[in-house]
């Protein structure tokens, strides 16, 4: 097993879910530029919705009028096309401003399957946290993203203005997130904040020393490395360690638990107001690059 993280190439943004949200598109694009990734936008036309049009009794509750209408394949196709075009306009606008490489793909199929197929170990998939009632909480694409081999970039519902360091939550000095965070810090010209998880005191200093040495070896100047040990187990201890840091990005390795919405990554993103990059746990992904 290797602690080396994969060399990420693409940032996948599912624009079918939050098609015309410029804020999310911009946050994703800025992240892609910071890490030198291609922005790959995907708009999935749910084939099941097309299929419903073949059922005579099928009908659609259309928002915001809250009125029921029969399913019509032609209209459905037109509305998918309009939504895709709108999403493309939003992405184009952001991409033109930031000047990054990008692709925009419209596919028809099962959204969850599409996301699962598209998301490889060298990808990062954007997951935007819900901020208001009204969103359908059982989005299968979201679940597919969590299940995929790709890393996840969890965007908070209301990003706070953060100009501080890039934080790496370290299970140990060999944690893959250290390298990703160091790379991002170097790229963004930011400091690096190391958050070693709770260790016995006799091991802590040695672990810090190793992690610091490794970060230095990864190109982060020592004077730009800070360490805040996480004082105990659990998410609250981690949030406590993050408090006041103004960290602009938190990088951590996912637990090998079954995927679920309310993961620590999502909770950190909400509570801290900054994006969280969730890496796959060690051993689940072969090292690349």
């Amino acid at each position: 097993m290797s602690a080396a993280p994969p060399a990420f190439r693409r940032l996948i943004l599912d624009v079918g879910d939050h098609a015309a949200n410029p804020r999310i598109a911009r946050a994703a694009a800025e992240f892609a530029r910071a890490l030198g990734l291609d922005l790959h936008c995907v708009f999935v036309e749910d084939e099941a919705v097309y299929g419903l049009a073949g059922l005579p009794f099928a009908r659609e509750l259309r928002l915001p009028a809250h009125e029921w209408h029969p399913m019509d394949a032609t209209r459905i196709a037109s509305e998918f096309a309009q939504a895709a075009a709108q999403a493309r306009r939003v992405v184009d606008e952001v991409v033109r401003t930031l000047g990054i490489a990008n692709a925009f793909e419209v596919v028809r199929g099962d959204p969850a399957a599409c996301i699962a197929v598209l998301s490889t170990a060298t990808d990062i998939v954007v997951v935007a946290e819900r901020g208001a009632p009204g969103a359908w909480p059982f989005d299968r694409r979201r679940a597919a993203a969590y299940r995929s081999a790709a890393a996840l970039l969890v965007l908070p519902p209301r990003p706070a203005s953060r100009q501080g360091p890039i934080a790496a939550v370290l299970a140990d000095a060999a944690d893959a997130c250290l390298e990703v965070a160091a790379r991002a810090a170097r790229s963004a010209g930011a400091s690096l904040l190391l958050l070693p998880l709770a260790l016995p005191p006799d091991q802590l200093q040695a672990a810090i020393a190793r992690a610091t040495a490794r970060a230095t070896a990864l190109g982060v100047p020592p004077d730009r490395i800070a360490v805040r040990p996480v004082a105990g187990p659990g998410l609250d201890a981690l949030l406590h360690a993050l408090a006041g840091s103004d960290a602009r990005l938190v990088v951590l390795t996912r637990a090998a638990d079954p995927p679920q919405d309310d993961t620590p990554g999502a909770r950190i993103a909400r509570a801290h107001g900054a994006p969280v990059l969730l890496l796959e746990p060690r051993g689940t992904v072969p090292a690349e690059g």
């Binding site: 099928a58 009908r59 928002l63 309009q82």
Partner: peptide, 24 residues
Amino acid sequence: IAVLRTPMGFAMAPTRDGKVVPPA
């Protein structure tokens, strides 16, 4: 039954083994 998001709202679809059943 599955609850699906359409471009403009919601719709219900019959499922079998967790997958939406095609009309045929």
